[in-house]
Computed example of a mutant assay.
Amino acid sequence: MKLALCTDVLGDLSFPQMLDKVKSYGITGVEMTAGGWSPCPHVNTNELLASPEKLASFRLELEKRDIEIVALNCSGNPLAPGELGEKHTASSYKAVELAGKLGVKKIVMMSGLPGGGPEDKVPNWITSTVSWPDYMPGVVDYQWNQVAIPWWKTFTQHARQHGVEQIAIEEFPSQLVYNPSTLLRLREAVGDIVGMNLDPSHLIAMGADPIAAVRKLEGAIFHVHGKDARIERALADIDGLLEYKPVTETKDRTWNYVAVGCGKDLLWWKEFFSVLRMTGYNGYVSLEMEDLTMSVEAGLETSIDALNATLSR
């Protein structure tokens, strides 16, 4: 396995400055956003698609530093009703086109989440049992069979046409795919070009075991995020893990995203990567640093040290 960096955390730096910073950490792989929710600080997708000269200059900056794009990320909600879904759909299609021009074979995405019916104006995440109230089975059927599966069948065709070989879907809460079982449902419906971007922090925050998830997903893990979460026991034991407070209110939340090693210890991370390797994954692990309990630099250095100490190389 090799370490890469999700570069949005260095969004205050220019593209060349960011690459120099990545290189200073001893990292030679980057995952950069090219669509979706991100402001895409280092990839102007429309500009690069429109200008062969700017595309060539962009590639040259990477080549000069011997840095590889391990994936383009366009995580958003392309299935949302209305303008948001249209915007994220368009950016997802363009990200795939840019990947084709750059020779990048992997896209990282989220599945998207539709509304609860054709008239809804906002997405609707069903996480309760559908046994009651009795309107929920129809919502789930609509979301999967009328919206998600048709969208993804069309999108995967577009991806194949542009040379993308893997679409790694992050199991993010408030998305239709938010755990291994929902990922496998989509994969069965649209084909094995779809796999998991396994981000352990999300499974931890939902009370699942990422190591067990690795075993369940054998052969279907396309990408891994190096990201940790900590259950804040003094609060979670009282209120549980369903949490909607802003991520900035770290002291009052029942769980938080933290630097790698500040949630699960290094022994856990060694087992996680060992089981990943044992079940066939030997690709990049992209550090995604979103710890708001410390500075960006401290979070990056802490996480890099922990990952370098635990990756199965």
Results as ranks from 00 to 15, higher is better:
residue 173 P to V: 02
residue 179 N to P: 01
residue 205 A to C: 06
residue 188 E to A: 15
residue 203 L to Y: 01
residue 190 V to N: 11
residue 207 G to W: 07
residue 174 S to I: 09
residue 207 G to E: 12
residue 202 H to M: 04
residue 189 A to V: 08
residue 206 M to V: 02
residue 189 A to N: 11
residue 202 H to P: 03
residue 185 R to V: 03
residue 190 V to Q: 11
residue 176 L to N: 05
residue 181 S to P: 00
residue 212 A to K: 12
residue 184 L to H: 06
residue 166 Q to S: 13
residue 209 D to R: 00
residue 188 E to H: 10
residue 202 H to C: 00
residue 179 N to Y: 09
residue 208 A to D: 15
residue 199 D to N: 10
residue 199 D to G: 04
residue 202 H to Q: 08
residue 181 S to M: 13
residue 198 L to A: 06
residue 179 N to C: 12
residue 171 E to W: 10
residue 212 A to M: 05
residue 173 P to R: 03
residue 211 I to R: 00
residue 199 D to Y: 02
residue 199 D to H: 01
residue 194 V to N: 09
residue 208 A to Y: 14
residue 211 I to Q: 01
residue 207 G to P: 01
residue 196 M to V: 14
residue 198 L to R: 02
residue 186 L to C: 10
residue 201 S to H: 05
residue 177 V to E: 09
residue 176 L to E: 07
residue 193 I to D: 01
residue 168 A to T: 03
residue 191 G to T: 10
residue 175 Q to P: 00
residue 185 R to N: 08
residue 170 E to W: 00
residue 175 Q to K: 07
residue 200 P to K: 02
residue 190 V to P: 06
residue 205 A to R: 04
residue 197 N to I: 07
residue 212 A to C: 01
residue 189 A to L: 08
residue 208 A to R: 11
residue 177 V to N: 08
residue 174 S to F: 14
residue 198 L to I: 08
residue 174 S to E: 15
residue 197 N to R: 02
residue 185 R to T: 11
residue 185 R to G: 05
residue 179 N to Q: 13
residue 197 N to C: 15
residue 185 R to L: 11
residue 178 Y to L: 02
residue 180 P to A: 14
residue 180 P to G: 10
residue 203 L to Q: 10
residue 202 H to F: 05
residue 187 R to T: 13
residue 207 G to Q: 08
residue 168 A to P: 01
residue 183 L to I: 09
residue 175 Q to N: 14
residue 170 E to Q: 12
residue 174 S to W: 13
residue 178 Y to I: 02
residue 183 L to V: 06
residue 184 L to P: 06
residue 190 V to L: 11
residue 189 A to G: 06
